[in-house]
Design a protein around this nucleic acid. Structure first.
Lengths: 152, 152
DNA sequence: AAATGAATGTTATAATATAACATAATTAAT
DNA sequence: ATTAATTATGTTATATTATAACATTCATTT
């Protein structure tokens, strides 16, 4: 996302991918849901629900909080976006359907966010859960700090 | 916490420990802050800010949101409690000052929460951060699922 | 064409959190 | 000791995040 050459193409690919996945799953990728996903992708970073609502209002002035939150719920449930718990924000998923445990690197300086996957982390997580006899359902791993770009 | 024999003793020890640490640090463990910490410890689990406010009102009817949130901020800043991001809740820290990276096991069934530390996780976290040239400031790791007790 | 269920529209409000300014208490400086 | 400065708390108001509840529209099936 951060490193894409042409973000418009990148957005379109994401939307097409979502469309395809929805067809496969037999769920409806409605105009509204598509618009919301597009707006999230457009941001290049994480977005807040009410900022999204403002953007949506530019397209459809009758948009209201439930309009946004319902679409967000759909997009989360189907793996197209993630909620960033420590920021009360939402971010596009860069690899829907290929999903394992993943984590986020959040830069406090430039507000960028990077979604990362790591076999190692997944393994340690699993071993910790096992050690505690814990039946894991959902992992939230968010790392806040200063990114590569901003350190230099 | 979950396994303490006598929770009253356990709370008192925690309060005394907090008192000592505050003295060491030269910060003020005021009556209010102590009360809030006590209420959090009393819960045996995580607590929501406004539930805390209700409890506090029983002691001091003039308590208001900022009363609670300021104390929570103090307690977080000084490492006596943690915020559980995925629940918008707060939980007592079971080992203030000995703090490394730690994570939470949150049972969706019985609402228990367990604070765990693991060298392994810390190491993997560090190696991942290094690999991404990321300067970590704060790690949020919250694992939601079903606990040992509730599985059986 | 009617019935069903899913999605959206709409109103209202719940839940979480902070800003801003006033007052009180504590600590430091004179 | 008195004043000044700082820190903590009191108080009012409001910002931010999210959902409940019910009405309507739209798509799909019968």
């Amino acid at each position: 996302m951060r490193n894409c050459k042409d973000h418009k193409t990148c957005i379109n690919e994401a939307l097409i991918k979502a469309e395809t996945i929805c067809k496969q799953k037999g769920v409806k990728f409605t105009k509204l849901r598509k618009q919301v996903l597009k707006l999230i992708w457009k941001s290049h970073s994480y977005v807040k629900a009410y900022d999204l609502l403002e953007e949506l209002k530019k397209i459809d002035s009758s948009a209201k909080p439930p309009t946004v939150y319902r679409s967000l719920d759909f997009l989360i449930d189907n793996g197209f976006i993630h909620k960033v718990q420590s920021l009360n924000a939402f971010v596009a998923c860069t690899h829907p359907q290929e999903h394992k445990e993943c984590y986020f690197l959040i830069c406090k300086n430039c507000k960028s966010i990077e979604e990362c996957c790591s076999e190692k982390i997944s393994k340690v997580m699993n071993s910790e859960a096992t050690r505690n006899n814990f039946n894991t359902n959902q992992v939230t791993l968010e790392i806040s700090g200063i990114c590569q770009e901003c350190i230099n």
